[in-house]
Amino acid sequence: MNGSLVQQLPAWGAVAALAVLVLVALSGAAADGLVTARAERRRGGGFAPVAETARLLRQRPRGTVAADTLLRRVGVVGLPVAAALKVAVLPVGAWVVSDLAVGLVWFNTMDVMVWALVWLSGWGPNSVHSLVGGYRFLALALAYELPLMFALTAPAVAAGSLRMADIVAAQDGLWFVVWMPVAFLVFCAAVLAFSLQRPFTAPLSPDIAGGVLAELSGVERLLLLAGRYLLLAAGSGFGVALFLGGGAGPVLPGWAWFLAKTLVLFWLLLTIRRRVPALRPEQLMAPAWVVGLPLILLQVLVVAVAAVAGKG
């Protein structure tokens, strides 16, 4: 297949994609604020993320002794950057910022970046609680990354390409979620995991005084909190492109369908993460590798057989 399936946007496309990503993430944060307010029998709550942003922007930065400021800043700034770089290869309807031939591997690379960035945010403050939080994330990451990689393999094998546009185009007749339900579920769980949402919040857990968040204040805390929403929003977008047919749909243009599906998946993941309890860091490895890994390998086997049978 060639790269003419989608149109690469000029330079302003990157800015537009970033703006859309921020708006989608903000919608999730606002929805979360509304639901929290309702649960606490308060009115409103939709402007909670704006208010929190304003509060954190005005907050006096608080430092620790002998902190590694450079590494801490790299870590917290990197999370939103990783989310933005993911979106760069995501085809929104017929448009994409960069039609990279190995877009799927690029996505995977950016989510491995999150390993380093969360650990650096934990290392930087020179505080025990933060460091324990950073290591807890690595423990979770070791457990979820391998199932995630195989979940990404399934659509790539079915489409015969690592280019995101080809993967979307290959779902012309049948969305991948229909015959790759296991891969989709594993992918969604991994999206929650790499965006540090429940049940994977052990790195930020209250039993270690907030973990990675313990010593972060002001703009840095804002960047890490926003980074979690941005990563979840970007992950939802990839879920739509990889499993839910991308921008396919009747009447409306592709970008509208794509955004609608992304918002639905994003809000669904946000709802799920409110309703599940947090896992302790050592609780994920056994289920992820003993149950998840064989299941996803069977899923890839089914997909591979179907792909070979379809060609022959």
Binding site: L100, V102, V105, T109, V112, M113, W115, A116, W123
Partner: peptide, 24 residues
């Protein structure tokens, strides 16, 4: 060399993160 380039970044960043685990 898109695949090799991206996979180099992936492997090396992951390796450094794992090295941080082994450090401790």
């Amino acid at each position: 060399l898109e695949y090799i380039g991206v996979i180099t970044i992936l492997m090396m960043v992951m390796e450094m993160a794992i090295m941080a685990i082994f450090m401790v």
